[in-house]
Design a protein around this nucleic acid. Sequence first.
DNA 1: ACTTACCGTAAGTCGTGGCTTACGATTCGT
DNA 2: ACGAATCGTAAGCCACGACTTACGGTAAGT
Lengths: 106, 106
Amino acid sequence: MNYEDAITALADPTRRVIIDRLRSGALPVGAIAEGMTISRPAVSQHLRVLSDAGLLTVTPQGNRRLYAIAPEGVDTLRRYLDTLWDDALAAFAQAATDQAKEKDNA
Amino acid sequence: MNYEDAITALADPTRRVIIDRLRSGALPVGAIAEGMTISRPAVSQHLRVLSDAGLLTVTPQGNRRLYAIAPEGVDTLRRYLDTLWDDALAAFAQAATDQAKEKDNA
DNA sequence: ACTTACCGTAAGTCGTGGCTTACGATTCGT
DNA sequence: ACGAATCGTAAGCCACGACTTACGGTAAGT
């Protein structure tokens, strides 16, 4: 649920591929691993990391397990970047005005 | 400039500490490393990674080098998460309606 | 000019994380 | 009830990255 785990999970390229495959909707593990270069257990491990980070939800359905993107998890990371964005803009504007003042004194 | 490098750079906890220290404005390397548990060269290496990822700007000023958050770099990552957010919401809504239909057939 | 301060880079060590194969558990089909 | 399918976990291997110390290069102070 914390943004640290979320950003760590999304840092891996393979996990971003998995996320991309789930963009259009939930999928079972086999369908996710289909066509990928790594083994299915490896995909399972990645799914585990993504779930623990709050980025995926799991719904067991009979024999299979459906994984889907958890909007709430994405939102926590989004909010972190929003605050960083706000601060970065404010600091940038401040630096611009400071530099203008500096030029006045010249 | 690509979001992959940006998210990889932000995945490291130490680098997030550095980013946090720059939220209020630009700082030289010595001021950033001040009070941190790691050595100053280690901080330099992290600054290098963050700069290469487009998240920081460097402005040499006499003896020192000022590092500041690059709003543009933060924005690229923000946009990636926005698209992910949109898709996640759409898939989530689709799944909800599907489940409602399923209940109708019962 | 000489020293001091500030910073980046090189080389080397070590832990962590991603991958594989092997195995066990659960559920569906017949 | 038995075999097949789907999936998670354990153990082990290996590369990558984060850190250290040591060094060099440039600018400021006196």
